[in-house]
Simulated assay, not measured.
Amino acid sequence: MSSRVRLGVNIDHVATVRNARGGAHPEPLRAARLAIEAGADGITAHLREDRRHISDADIGALSELCHGLGKPLNFEMAVTAEMRDIALRHRPHAACLVPERREERTTEGGLDVARNHAAIAPVVRALRDAGVRVSLFIEPDPVQVAVAEAIGAQVVEFHTGAYCEAVIHGRDPAPLLEALKRGAGEAERRGLEVHAGHGLDYDTAQTVAAIPQVVELNIGHFLIGEAIFVGLETAIRTMRTRIDAARPGA
């Protein structure tokens, strides 16, 4: 495959900064609009059970914005009845089911679909029946990929955190990158669309984007952090350039 890799911009941490002061600034909706103007192909937002960053009102506003601009909203959510009902109410373009623990600072790994398939499958089915495209955030493990297919997911998003941490801390990232490549190949063989995200920066995003089966990267923390120094538009445009460089023929 040589098609252009889509870039989804996660705006959770704009809301983190806003909530630190309890006011209305900076506004996630404004960040989403700027991201789209800068070249984002879609917006990602994670409504956590503890509401530590994105709020219910944010999801409503983002749904309206993305629908009005013809851009997809990727709604990240835990596998709970509450989140299922919120997703069914707003019917975003896509819902990405992720693991969630209240004490974690950020999502620490992939969803264990193999162990928890009995609880996950009904949520996948309900979302699909409502016309929502369902993604599962998993490790690039062939068993997890196989179960994702079996319970009806259309997309798998591979957790790239371990690979990115290895790069940052000077450990050998080659085995982890190879696992991502093998997982992407297995997902493609099973008819699943392949996305990737977590911990990606300019360099690691370009490397992961070069994996032929990857069609979308979802990136948030790095872009929001980089925006402090260069502005959100420049950060996103630079990321877009780096991702495109991974597929020069696209």
Score class of each variant (00 low, 15 high):
residue 106 T to G: 05
residue 203 D to P: 00
residue 146 A to C: 07
residue 219 I to E: 01
residue 150 A to I: 08
residue 165 E to W: 00
residue 4 R to F: 03
residue 75 F to L: 11
residue 42 G to L: 11
residue 248 P to L: 05
residue 63 S to H: 15
residue 149 E to I: 01
residue 20 A to C: 06
residue 63 S to V: 03
residue 103 E to Q: 13
residue 171 R to D: 14
residue 61 A to E: 13
residue 216 E to M: 14
residue 183 G to W: 03
residue 135 S to M: 06
residue 148 A to G: 03
residue 212 P to L: 09
residue 10 N to M: 06
residue 74 N to R: 02
residue 76 E to T: 01
residue 16 T to D: 04
residue 151 I to A: 08
residue 249 G to R: 10
residue 31 A to Q: 05
residue 125 R to N: 14
residue 195 H to A: 04
residue 7 L to V: 06
residue 126 A to M: 02
residue 40 A to D: 03
residue 89 R to A: 15
residue 102 R to E: 13
residue 163 Y to A: 08
residue 46 H to Q: 11
residue 39 G to C: 03
residue 143 V to Q: 08
residue 234 T to K: 15
residue 121 A to S: 12
residue 137 F to Q: 01
residue 59 I to L: 11
residue 196 A to T: 12
residue 108 E to S: 10
residue 216 E to I: 11
residue 23 G to D: 13
residue 78 A to N: 06
residue 182 R to Q: 15
residue 114 A to F: 13
residue 18 R to Q: 12
residue 186 E to F: 04
residue 111 L to T: 09
residue 225 G to W: 10
residue 215 V to H: 13
residue 200 L to N: 02
residue 201 D to R: 08
residue 191 G to L: 07
residue 247 R to G: 09
residue 43 I to D: 03
residue 112 D to T: 04
residue 154 Q to H: 11
residue 94 A to H: 14
residue 190 R to I: 10
residue 131 G to D: 09
residue 207 T to I: 15
residue 21 R to I: 10
residue 208 V to C: 03
residue 18 R to G: 07
residue 108 E to F: 02
residue 170 G to Y: 01
residue 83 M to S: 10
residue 119 A to F: 09
residue 244 D to F: 14
residue 203 D to A: 09
residue 166 A to Y: 00
residue 164 C to Q: 04
residue 202 Y to S: 07
residue 50 D to I: 12
residue 39 G to M: 05
residue 68 G to W: 13
residue 200 L to F: 00
residue 30 R to F: 09
residue 200 L to E: 04
residue 101 R to N: 09
residue 39 G to N: 03
residue 29 L to D: 05
residue 216 E to R: 04
residue 130 A to Y: 09
residue 204 T to I: 02
residue 72 P to K: 06
residue 240 R to L: 00
residue 53 H to F: 10
residue 128 R to M: 10
residue 19 N to A: 11
residue 129 D to K: 14
residue 74 N to W: 07
residue 130 A to M: 12
residue 246 A to D: 06
residue 235 A to T: 08
residue 26 P to F: 00
residue 215 V to M: 12
residue 194 V to T: 02
residue 60 G to H: 01
